[in-house]
């Protein structure tokens, strides 16, 4: 029950310097490394729950206004948003979700370089997503005045409530985009840890958690894409 499984039991036995992941010792208040890893994952799942709840606020607002203004909603979606751009970004995020899983797999197999390569691909996908979003959507929209609520100045509205559709579009995609940006930072942090040898078969909790975070960012987009681009 209380067996202690610190990984540095035979430090240096075979005469070589241990990698940090091999020498990992759990925090002083933990009974063993297993409990610590389990707790970290539980904490992460709870955090993901809060993320979903946060976005569900947007989804509720979306549902209310779509119910009130169904036709205008449909027209605005077709007119202001290009499904092709959205689709490209969807593909890129799906790919990045796959590569982040491969990075974890590489850690389990103790292939340090592959952890780094897969995380790098993930990060490039994330960057691609943001560049497309900002360069091909946000900037043209700002120039044309396709802005939320009271700031809306576009010359050719499709209905009376385009600006509300655009409000929902802006606040939800911008909040999601902010999460992608945070993702880039945490993935870079994981790359740094990977480069320093902190991930190996017995210890890769934070990498797994970064992966979980990245999945939730993808999943939210998987919902936003059809709701905004394909109605």
């Amino acid at each position: 029950m209380t067996s202690v499984t610190t990984t540095n039991g035979d430090a240096g036995a075979n005469g070589r310097e241990l990698e940090p992941h091999e020498a990992y010792v759990p925090g002083a208040h933990w009974r063993n490394a297993h409990d610590e890893a389990e707790a970290a994952k539980l904490g992460m799942w709870l955090f993901l729950g809060t993320e979903i709840l946060l976005f569900s606020g947007f989804f509720c607002a979306y549902a209310v206004f779509r119910m009130w203004y169904p036709e205008n909603w449909h027209d605005a979606s077709r007119y202001y948003l290009s499904w092709k751009i959205g689709f490209a970004n969807t593909c890129v995020l799906l790919l990045s979700s796959y590569t982040v899983v491969l990075a974890i797999r590489a850690a389990q197999q103790n292939k340090k370089n592959w952890i780094l390569i897969h995380l790098l691909i993930t990060n490039l996908c994330a960057l691609f997503f943001l560049v497309v979003k900002i360069g091909w959507e946000y900037i043209p929209k700002i120039q044309k005045g396709e802005l939320p609520g009271g700031l809306f100045t576009y010359y050719n509205p499709q209905g009376e409530f385009d600006h509300i559709f655009l409000s929902i579009y802006w606040i939800s995609t911008a909040t999601h985009g902010f999460h992608v940006l945070v993702g880039i930072f945490v993935i870079s942090w994981a790359m740094w840890l990977a480069a320093k040898g902190h991930y190996g078969p017995k210890h890769y909790t934070s990498l797994e958690n970064v992966g979980l975070y990245w999945h939730i960012v993808d999943i939210i987009w998987i919902f936003l894409f059809p709701l905004l681009y394909l109605v």
Binding site: L53, G149, G150, I168
Partner: peptide
Amino acid sequence: VLGITLLMLVFERTFQIGI
């Protein structure tokens, strides 16, 4: 949910999202 509500209120004040 409070977080997102207050955030929408802040957006309402700063960007007049109008919802």
